[in-house]
Computed example of a mutant assay.
Amino acid sequence: MLRRFFLYSKGPTIMLAFLVLFLAALSRLIPHVNHAVAFNFTAVGAGLLFFGSRRPRWQTVVAVAVMALMDVYLTTQVYSYPFHVRAYLVTWVWYAAVCLTGSALLRKVTALRVVAGVLASATSFFVLSNFVVWAGSGMYPHSMAGLASCYASAVPFYVNDLISTAMVSAVLFGLPALAVKMREEQSVAGRV
């Protein structure tokens, strides 16, 4: 059972999904520790897409647990705030949704599917997280103008999240495709 847990992928990428998940969690931690969160440039969206595309759907629980533990650590240890589960429920549902979106890529990874995953990941986080900020805090008036102001204020964060998710996804999904193409070309050249 445990062997099947880790060996779902074949070949040299057996542990790659877990390594990417670990690096995505670190990319969430490092900006907060260095107080550089204004950039919102992380590998979380791309890492969850990649993990979801390489692991069975049920292992979404693993990815959500890793990212949730990072949220608990950041809240309680880095910022010394009390932790409230309800404050993170939407984020944890988003983590799961991105992993499951990645599992849709598992059938056949194409550039169009990766682009769709990137857009869905970054845009859904932008829409959900800012709606929760608007609805659940006193930062913005609870009116349409307040909602519009909340979203407008978050556009720079959205742009950086979209760029970082696209760049990391291009590397994670593009490099294996490039390696396969190069291997095929070497095989054809070897037969000639």
Rank of each mutant, 00 (worst) to 15 (best):
R54P: 00
A25N: 05
S103Q: 11
F157T: 07
V115C: 05
V127C: 05
A145E: 12
A152Y: 10
H35N: 10
L2G: 14
L89R: 03
A189M: 11
V133M: 11
A166K: 01
G11E: 08
A122W: 08
L29N: 10
M70F: 01
F50L: 08
T42C: 13
A24W: 09
G190C: 05
P31T: 10
K10G: 04
I14A: 13
I163S: 06
A177R: 15
T13K: 09
E184Q: 04
V61W: 09
Y81P: 01
L162P: 12
V192G: 04
R107L: 02
L106T: 10
L175D: 03
R4E: 13
F125N: 14
F5N: 03
K181A: 01
A63R: 09
D161N: 13
R54E: 15
V192I: 09
L29Q: 13
F5K: 00
S121Y: 08
A68T: 15
C150N: 12
G47E: 08
S164N: 08
Y151E: 07
G174C: 09
V98H: 04
D71Y: 00
V127K: 02
P31I: 11
S153F: 15
S149P: 00
S121M: 02
R54I: 09
F22A: 14
A97C: 14
V93E: 10
Q77S: 14
P176A: 04
S121R: 02
S103V: 00
P82G: 14
R191D: 10
T110D: 03
L106A: 12
A145H: 05
V171Y: 05
A179I: 03
L29M: 15
D161P: 00
N34S: 13
C99N: 03
Y151C: 07
L69D: 05
V132T: 13
S149A: 15
L23S: 04
V85L: 14
F50W: 14
L147V: 03
M1C: 03
F125I: 02
V132L: 06
Q186Y: 00
W58A: 07
S164W: 12
V78F: 12
V66C: 13
S124A: 03
G45V: 04
L172M: 10
M182Q: 13
S153H: 14
L26C: 15
A65K: 01
R28K: 15
L100I: 06
L19V: 15
N40I: 00
D71P: 06
